[in-house]
Design a protein around this nucleic acid. Structure first.
Length: 419
RNA sequence: GGAGAUGUGUCCGAGCUGGUUGAAGGAGCACGAUUGGAAAUCGUGUAAACGUUUAAUAAGCGUUUCUAGGGUUCGAACCCCUACAUCUCCGCCA
């Protein structure tokens, strides 16, 4: 959410952001509602001030055993007026709030402006595409040869896009999660949290998934709960509606959760194996930092995610998303794409974003600055990493001529069976 | 699911026979004094949001906020109703 004062002062900037992000928020309506709200607020406050004054007079008269009947009678109509006004004010505020929730964050000035992913900016790459003296297979085939995956039975018990990992596949999956969680704790100083996988509507709104993405999520109607699409949601909201003392910052958390995505509207796209699934595992890094530090921290977090791929010996590249690819809440995002030799393409395994104070304002996450003033923190998060495409890259990169797969050294301590 | 208790500021904790109570007291924190330095002690200060005013995100003024939402009343932290959360006991179940 953006600050109304900011919107008033930077209307053009906000208007441009909506266009560049391909959003359709109604800025004009917001400004009109804001105007209306302020007028109502003023009228209400003025009348309420009168009521408060007279109420004191009544109290005084009663104390002195004088007759206050006349004043009380006067206030009867004022009281009714106030009730009507507050109702109207509440309605306008509600409308305004609802409209405001559809307003996207403003991209950082350096973000490339573009209408689709072809405008994304290449940042750097690590390693190189490996050579094979055989034709590398795609991961479903490698998985089949080693009995790692059972997509058919997953589809049977739930539906398509719900993978079942079997044997070494399940071991590998668990090893990846353990490896990543431990790595971020020991090498990067994150504190681990284990959080609920189901959250309520307020939480889902706080990080910006709602109202826009309601149809992309699995929901539980009875309680109005949602299955989380990413650990970002529960972890970032951990400190919602709180004012953090100075010493609490920076907050540096890492957590594992499964992620649930309906992926509405993407049927038929990237359907092969683990490329696009409805449930997957992810280790997520979340940081709450002082506004002055957030862009330095953004770079650092990209490095944290890269370190995982480097430890696994997987070739990747880093790209910066252009305005059209930038998510609703993000001000600046880097994607990390790992190379999949069998598929012959790069796959997104991590997205690292700085939301500045956009989520903090929605969720009410603030801190007390050195000057005693209360400010919104800046929130950031990044996958470190999502497992399915990491697994794809792993299987395709480490496949051997005989069809078996090698295990990178970094993962071996986390596998409980001898390969 | 059944019975009961509770829900106040950063935290603990009064107030709950309705009228200067944004809210006693304490802790914490900040600043100052004391000290060679520190502890202890003493003093001072210590909410946020919105509106208005303003060059000002300074001071001022107004309004709101005692879990949330309704109600009663001229007026509610205090009375009534509902929801939610926490705790205790019982039942049920991994």
């Amino acid at each position: 959410m953006l600050d109304l004062k900011f919107i008033r002062a930077n209307t053009e900037l906000v208007r441009q952001a909506i266009i560049n992000k391909n959003e359709k928020a109604d800025l004009g309506a917001i400004l009109a509602l804001d105007d209306k709200r302020r007028k109502l607020q003023f009228d209400f406050d003025t009348l309420k001030a009168t009521q408060n004054q007279v109420s004191q007079q009544i109290a005084l008269k009663k104390k002195n055993k004088e007759d206050a009947g006349e004043l009380i009678e006067q206030m009867g109509s004022v009281s009714e007026q106030l009730k009507a006004m507050s109702t109207e004010l509440a309605e306008v505020e509600k409308e305004l709030e609802a409209a405001l929730l559809w307003l996207p964050n403003v991209p950082h000035p350096e973000v490339p402006i573009g209408r689709d992913e072809s405008f994304n900016r290449f940042v750097r790459e690590w390693g190189s595409k490996p050579d094979y003296d055989f034709i590398p297979k795609e991961h479903p085939e490698v998985a089949a040869q080693n009995n790692l995956l059972d997509m058919q039975r997953g589809a049977k018990i739930t539906g398509s896009g719900f993978p079942v990992y079997t044997g070494l596949g399940a071991n590998l999956e668990r090893a990846l999660i353990n490896f990543m969680l431990t790595f971020h704790q020991q090498k990067h100083g994150y504190e681990e949290v284990a959080v609920p996988f189901i959250v309520n509507r307020k939480t889902m709104t706080g990080t910006g998934q709602l109202p826009k993405l309601e149809n992309d999520m699995y929901r539980i109607d009875e309680e109005d709960f949602f299955l989380i699409p990413t650990a970002e949601v529960p972890i970032t909201n951990l400190y919602s509606d709180e004012i953090l003392p100075l010493g609490k910052l920076p907050v540096k958390l890492v957590g594992y959760t499964p992620c649930f995505r309906r992926e509405a509207g993407s049927y038929g796209k990237d359907t092969k194996g683990l490329q696009r699934v409805h449930q997957f595992n992810k280790v997520e890094m979340v940081r709450f930092v002082h506004p002055d530090e957030s862009y330095a921290v953004l770079e650092e977090m990209v490095g944290n995610a890269e370190a995982i791929l480097q430890a696994l010996g997987l070739h990747y590249r880093v790209v910066e998303l252009c305005t059209a690819d930038l998510s609703f809440a993000s001000a600046r995002t880097y994607d990390i794409e790992v190379w999949a030799p069998g598929a012959g393409r790069y796959l997104e395994v991590s997205s690292v974003s700085n939301f500045e104070d956009f989520q903090a304002r929605r969720a009410g996450i603030r801190f007390r600055d050195t000057d005693g003033k209360v400010r919104f923190v800046h929130t950031l998060n990044g996958s470190g990493l999502a497992t399915p495409r990491t697994m794809i890259a792993l299987l395709e990169t480490y496949q051997q001529a005989d069809g078996s797969i090698a295990i990178p050294e970094a993962l071996k301590p986390w596998l409980n069976i001898v390969v």
